[in-house]
């Protein structure tokens, strides 16, 4: 497991610190990089060390030559600028990008990763409205169930992208919106599929826009028989504008 020195036992925390401070050999760094990609708990240790040490950083900004950007564009986009263009901001682009989150179970150990993508997603020239599209990560709660949620106020629509975690046979995931001390309100059973949509009525839209929390619970097939969550909350996250 230990990439280098015999008789040199190191715990993960030490290894993460050594990677961040930069003292490891080429082979060790390769091994650590691979581990960051595959081991979310370890990636989090590395992230924490970056956060500890980065205030030490200092550098002299230097303008790179224009040729650097030209070469970068050639390397990135030479084989299909049209494709790159067509993927910008459309729903397909969004979902294929969200699909990249698959396997990113680093999110599992981050309390909540959330992003509000309106107005950033707005197409140029498109009128911006007060409440637009918002994205939240519903991070696992003692489970491996992870969903991404996109709420679109204009369409009264919630899109759910299934990242990880399976429901058992005879069970369903049910999506809830929870506002302050109010009891959770059901948004319905989450249909099976990697990318699904739920309609939202106006009362629920208001709750969402006021900064409600989303939660997913595990329920008997067909949804909670009581109108309130009966099973464990397997994923949760909040949604607010940043």
């Amino acid at each position: 497991m230990n990439p280098a020195h015999d008789n040199d036992p190191r715990d993960d925390d030490t290894l993460a610190a050594e990677y961040v401070v930069g003292v490891l050999s080429a082979d060790e760094r390769r091994a650590v990089s691979a581990r960051i990609e595959s081991d979310p708990a370890f990636a989090r240790l590395v992230d924490q060390w970056e956060a500890h040490l980065s205030p030490m950083d200092e550098f002299v900004p230097a303008e790179p030559p224009a040729s650097a950007k030209r070469k970068l564009d050639e390397r990135l986009f030479a084989n299909g600028p049209a494709e790159a263009g067509s993927r910008s901001s459309g729903p397909a682009g969004l979902w294929s990008s969200l699909a990249l989150w698959r396997g990113l179970t680093a999110a599992a150990v981050v309390a909540v990763a959330l992003l509000a993508v309106q107005p950033y997603l707005g197409q140029p020239g498109q009128p911006e409205q007060g409440a637009g599209r918002l994205v939240a990560s519903l991070a696992p709660q003692q489970s491996d169930v992870h969903y991404f949620v996109v709420y679109d106020a204009r369409e009264n629509d919630i899109g759910l992208s299934h990242v990880t975690g399976e429901r058992g046979a005879d069970q369903d995931f049910e999506l809830w919106v929870i506002e302050g001390d109010q009891p959770p309100a059901s948004l319905g059973v989450v249909p099976a599929g990697t990318s699904v949509h739920l309609a939202v009525d106006q009362a629920l839209s208001r709750k969402i826009e006021q900064g409600a929390v989303f939660a997913i619970s595990l329920e008997p097939r067909g949804g909670s028989p009581t109108g309130q969550p009966t099973g464990p909350v397997v994923a949760a996250g909040d949604l607010r504008e940043i």
């Binding site: 790159a84 993927r87 910008s88 901001s89 990008s97 990249l100 993508v117 950033y120 997603l121």
Partner: peptide, 10 residues
């Protein structure tokens, strides 16, 4: 965030 959506202008 916009770059993660493959927005080249961003």
């Amino acid at each position: 965030v916009r770059t993660s959506m493959k927005d080249r202008a961003a």
